[in-house]
């Protein structure tokens, strides 16, 4: 059964004003449990609005959202419980830190869920380990940490709620290359270990190509496609026209095949490009 399902999901901003805008336009989507999904789209494509529907922060103007088989907004009292199933990490999540200590800040979400002290403690230790926050840091103020550490504490705060679906909006933005790789690697580890569904929203097609098993493309408020990376990058030209930056390596091999080199397959990671080039060389 699909963990996330939308039926004809539509959201309109500023209905009845001159600023009216359809932000999400009849999206039908089914995401299976355990998938690692990359979500891409130009700024204003509707991807942020879409993900805010998945944990009930926004109420659809029209259409339905199902999480784990249960319809959101059908019973408003259930909303908060369903919300706990979908963890949403916003862009620059370090701006939401507020507690006196790192430990307490990670505990905020689990506490709101009404879990026992022991369970909260177990979860904090487990998620802190997963995001590489040492226990020595637990009693420090989150505001004393480095930028990368703050970011990871904030992500841990949502992971500790153990949501069935974890959605991260640009978790690596503003970090240096090493920080990017570290955080994305940890998210991948989390996915491997927990077997939960992960949605990674990113402008970086390189990052999405490296980690995602499926890619969701939003364009002009509509779901453009939801498919495997191979099939998505096969449409590199269309993606470029939408203002998305296709990985450099994909562009290189697109151009090579346009020049008459029989590349054969879609290339979207450096390692794959290397293996493919070696194969092509040995076939010559």
């Amino acid at each position: 059964m699909a963990i996330i399902k939308t039926e004809n999901l539509t959201y309109v901003y500023g209905e009845g004003t001159p600023f009216r805008k359809v932000a999400v336009d009849s999206v039908n989507l089914e995401i299976e449990e355990g998938e690692f999904v990359g979500v891409i789209g130009h700024t204003g494509s509707g991807k942020s609005t879409l993900i805010q529907h998945l944990n009930g922060l926004l109420k659809p103007t029209d259409g339905k959202v199902f999480i784990d088989g249960e319809q959101l907004w059908e019973d408003k009292k259930r909303l908060r419980d369903i919300r706990f199933k979908v963890g949403l990490v916003f862009q620059y999540p370090e701006y939401q830190l507020f507690e006196e200590t790192v430990y307490k800040d990670i505990a905020f979400g689990p506490k709101n869920m009404g879990l026992s002290e022991d369970e909260i403690d177990r979860r904090i230790r487990e998620t802190a380990r997963m995001v590489g926050i040492r226990e020595e840091l637990f009693d420090k103020s989150p505001f004393e940490l480095s930028g990368g550490q703050k970011r990871r504490v904030a992500i841990a705060g949502v992971m500790a709620m153990e949501p069935k679906v974890l959605i991260l909006d640009e978790p690596a933005s503003g970090l240096d290359p090493k920080g990017r790789d570290k955080i994305l690697g940890q998210i991948r580890e989390y996915h491997k270990e927990k077997k939960n569904t992960v949605l990674l929203v990113s402008h970086s097609m390189e990052d999405v190509a490296k980690h995602a098993g499926r890619i969701l493309v939003m364009n002009k408020s509509k779901l453009y496609m939801y498919d495997t990376p191979v099939n998505v990058f096969a449409k590199a030209d269309e993606l470029s026209n939408m203002g998305l930056s296709v990985p450099q390596i994909t562009r290189v091999f697109k151009r090579l095949s346009a020049m008459g080199v029989n590349v054969g397959e879609e290339v979207y990671t450096v390692y794959f490009a290397k293996d493919l080039t070696m194969k092509l060389l040995s076939n010559k």
């Binding site: 919300r83 916003f90 701006y95 905020f108 979400g109 709101n112 705060g157």
Partner: peptide, 16 residues
């Protein structure tokens, strides 16, 4: 705008 964003973020963490 920032207040809106922080409110959404804390709501997503179960703040009531």
């Amino acid at each position: 705008e920032e207040t809106d964003k922080i409110m959404s973020a804390q709501k997503a963490r179960g703040a009531d």
